[in-house]
Design a binder for these strands. Structure first.
Lengths: 212, 212
DNA sequence: ATAGGTTGGATAGTGGCACTCACCAATGAA
DNA sequence: TTCATTGGTGAGTGCCACTATCCAACCTAT
């Protein structure tokens, strides 16, 4: 398959594919001659994944490169390869260290302790997910909206259950590579699905309560 | 309160505040003289909300203007003012109309029908949330990952429950304006909290299953 | 009264990022 | 032998959230 066909089949312009090749988010094709290269189905799959991560999950191209590098790094164990997506994620601007952040830290700690999230408590804010969560809670607190461990607990249990279900699904895939790729896709691409469902649920509930 | 104090108390630079005033996401201050204006606590609250929406929820400034315009529009009823945040949201690039999208539409329809989401089914893809959901599902399908009504059902029920809880909390606020503002904050600023929790849960579960 | 800093407003510029265009020599089909 | 096509490269575009610089009006300390 040549570049043009790759472009046709993926719906991504050749210019953009060239850009992805340059940025290293797409591996180079097999060289046929000095100036021509051949691409295969694997490239097509990767290209579609990159597109989804960039356009749907809003992951910066540079971050996609890091994530995929870890996905392909067979010298790492499965946990780290799967964690790549979580650890490379853009945490946003780090929150200013004020009272709200301290309070947020306290509530998140309480929550993790109460529900026995041993790993999360152990590594604490080393985890980008942990820092992101604390920062997001602090933002709500700063605006004067309540957001304590009691309020978060039911959500925490629900997402915990989702995680169990999700990893069950991921384990169905036969090879480690497919499992890791599925974990990345599941982690990042399921987020818009979840948010879409949530927004739709809020809309539904609002209309039911207050009418149109 | 003058601009400089507003800046000090919010932690936002005067240049940025001026930019927000120019863009109309912050109402102008009360004019004292021809070249000076006075700001109050209301401005401070708004400024903090704008900051959170822009920096945390990644809402474009132009969209924030629209959202806040609806929030302040007392000629609309409560449902529409609350819905403002949901309807003004950036839907991202609209998905290409292929088999995956058709399949996604079918599964989302099945899901809403089965769980009795009457309103969502009625307005269908007029709702940005509905379109976003369908598009997100289609993305997963395009990549070859399963995402049908059966898989979505438990998540749908969970977010539905979250919506009920959320609106209960929102109804606690005494005035309509506060309820509407809380709805916007709850809709947009709770999303990073939820995603943070989910990512932490995935991390926790991954480590528990596969070790470090 | 006046010097010197501060204020709000306007205009133009910056930096980051995801592309996108224009061009090139090498290639391959007619 | 023609001539469009290919892959690679460097420069440019458009968007967007700021940010730097001016300016004249304003306040304040001497």
């Amino acid at each position: 398959m040549r570049l043009a066909e790759l472009s046709d089949r993926s719906g991504v312009s050749t210019a953009t594919i060239k850009y992805y090749l340059r940025e290293g988010v797409l591996p180079p094709g097999r060289r046929i001659t000095a100036t021509q290269a051949e691409y295969d189905e694997e490239h097509l799959r990767r290209l579609r994944l990159v597109r989804a991560l960039v356009q749907i999950a809003r992951v910066p191209v540079a971050t996609v490169r890091e994530v995929l590098a870890s996905v392909d790094d067979t010298s790492l164990n499965r946990t780290f390869r799967m964690g790549a997506a979580l650890w490379a994620l853009p945490g946003g601007p780090e929150p200013e260290d004020d009272d709200a952040l301290a309070a947020a830290r306290r509530e998140v700690d309480r929550l993790l302790e109460r529900d026995g999230w041993a790993h999360a408590r152990e590594i604490g804010e080393l985890s980008p997910a942990h820092r992101a969560l604390t920062g997001a809670v602090a933002t709500l607190l700063r605006l004067g909206y309540p957001c304590d461990a009691d309020l978060l607990a039911p959500y925490a249990r629900q997402v915990r259950q989702m995680a169990v279900q999700g990893l069950d699904d991921i384990e169905e895939f036969p090879t480690h590579l497919e499992q890791v790729e599925a974990a990345v896709a599941y982690t990042l691409l399921f987020e818009p699905v979840l948010l879409g469902l949530r927004r739709l649920a809020l809309e539904e509930e609002t209309v039911e309560r207050f009418g149109l």
